[in-house]
Design a protein around this nucleic acid. Sequence first.
RNA 1: GCCACCUUAGCUCAGCGGUAGAGCGAUGCUUUCGUAAAGCAUAGGUCCAGGGUUCAAAUCCCUGAGGUGGCUCCA
Length: 731
Amino acid sequence: MPTYTLPDGKKLSFDEPKSGLEVAAAIGTGLAKAAIGWKVNGELHDLSWKAPEDADIQIVTFPRPGQQASPDALYLMRHSAAHVMAEAIQDVVGKDVLLAYGPPTETGFFYDMYVPAGKSISTDHFNAISGRMAEIIKENRPITRYEQGSEEGLRRLRAEGNKYKVDNAERALGLPSSVYRSSKPAPAAERQATQSLSFYATGTPGKNWEDLCRGPHVPSTGRIGAARVMSVASSFWHGDENSDRLTRVYGTAFPTQEELDKYLAQLEEAKKRDHRVIGRALRLFHIDEDVGQGLILWTPRGSIVRKELQTFIGAELRKQGYTEVFTPHIGRLELYKTSGHFPYYKDSQFAPIVERDDLDKACAEGCSCAELMHRVEGVSERFRSVMNDRTKAETITQDRVVPDDKLISGFLLKPMNCPHHAKIFASSPHSYRDMPVRLAEFGTVYRWEQSGELNGMTRVRGFTQDDAHLFCTDDQLPAEMQGCLDLVKIIFSTLGMKDYRVRVGLRAPDSSKYTGTKESWDKAEAACIAAAESLGVPFSKEPGEAAFYGPKIDFVVKDVIGREWQLGTVQVDYNMAIRFDLSYIGPDNKPHRPVVIHRAPFGSMERFCGVLIEHFAGAFPTWLSPEQVRVLPISEKSADYARKVERVLLDAGVRVSIDESPDRIQSKVKAAADDKVPYMLIVGPRDAEQNAVSVRARGIEKDLGAMPLEQFVSGVREEVSTRRATLDVKP
RNA sequence: GCCACCUUAGCUCAGCGGUAGAGCGAUGCUUUCGUAAAGCAUAGGUCCAGGGUUCAAAUCCCUGAGGUGGCUCCA
């Protein structure tokens, strides 16, 4: 005799387990009509599923016109839309397309499928697929669930010859995969093992299209609303690059065509905010294929934005007791063998710059490519024993040892600044009295990112970190972490960035890949969590996301099309001090290992500016604007006064320009508005007479009226010096 | 790197086998004007590069480069 509790606390009792539809009908016919699924104890189920026991329930409904669809309703619709799309693709492209995995996502859904050699799914198919989907939706076929015993079901799937579905079934049943072979272990099933397999027919089982699926789904295809194929991409089975390559087709669905159209229009709008579009329009940066992929050329206007940010953070660093250093863009290979970066991360580094004489000598010996690499990546016996002694482990294996006269030496374009900073720390003795040592540098690093991964300013091959390394004692760690987070907080609040999430990367529970002792890790993780808590914003603890050398705190923001980018980061490192044999003298007059914090509150200047351009849609606050004020003379007759106004502003340290084109004032206003200049000063004979300026802020607000020039100058200076995020100078 | 798509004037794009087009921008002239585009004129192209098919290629095919969206990766 189950009792179901509704969200408002009302209780409904029945003689026997009831389905969602029956419960909805008991509440009201309107609700039963609108119902597309139900939530039982927080878990989403088919409407036809009967809840066996007492439970908290909630009916999920198709939204009424004008009503916002709930996330649960969208989830159900989109999950079902994925099935409909898969059926449509098999109709349009061929039945030999093998389905693998098709879940809903935040903005829609996708289906991963194996497309046989010789065939492909391209954008040319999209209209046909979307059209077929519309037909299936219009047919309003019931979506029917049925179960088969595990053996029977598996037999059936094997007979169908789709190893991906066999693999899904085996994972659902908690069996080891008989088909998935890879270097990586298959990810564990997200849910508990089931006893039988569930299938969903889009229509009548045995007659219509069917798919192995755990559900849940909407009761019929007519409940999907409007759906559309969005894009096609390649993916890997189980996300494993050594595994099969699959084709991933993305789609999205909404309750109505209007909402779908609105979503598509939003995407178009978002594209206009894209930092690559604005960056070109406002001449902020340039990427030139002759210079190289992923290498940013900062143009004069963009350089101003970056310089202002650097000046801003520089002032904060001085307040916090940092000292600034400069280090070169390259370092000896041996330096990076010491830090462990080379050759461990060689796949994401630019190839080393090797000594010509060593290379010539090896070539003269007729050295093979493999041997050449071995000699570049190898170390001397002495190096090996020193390193292994420091790390107290077989960090460097015997097979990497190369005789001294065969070693090829060279340099590496630096992928990290830390080895250089470690060497600065090591260059003089340190007492516990002068700890912590905080070395800061806008250090430019180079990493070889895969070409498909490059993206405007947000993913590049050369970038400048607002880097610093804090060498501190164990006891100082919590306070230093706190200081690092304060910096990030100051940056985000000054720039009015509120939409970010904080990720605390911790150890995986069962892993031996980490360096450092358990005690020091516990302490560092506690410090990270305490520091994150002090931020006053929600954060997620993510086990397994720590670096191998220590836990970390990352700040992640979304770009205009919803992609996440990591900006600021604070990382604890127990490894570096050991590898570089760093020490300070403690009160006991004995050497101690410092802890190192790597931190970059902006992350990289490139990525941060890219995100910032989108954040402001190019309309920077005055202090960051490349051009802060533009003087617009009404006509040439007012040019002399305009130049006088410009002179006064220039002398006040304001970035000002003057528009002396023969255009009409309307045209000049539009040009300045398009360039997102914070303040326009319209000056004509009237203003000249009174030594005044007529102010207009960024074209957003209309004519603000006239004010004395001196008053405007002091207003702008005040706004800039306090780094105000809004335009506040008004008559 | 993988899959799909894209690459035509400075920018945004049309043309898709038969001699290269538009809007904006630029330049010049006229206008001297009070708050989101004055008028007229002119210049501007190896149609991403290389190869092939064809009487004929921006257009069709192949290879390469660069870009976009995903996948994978991110010390």
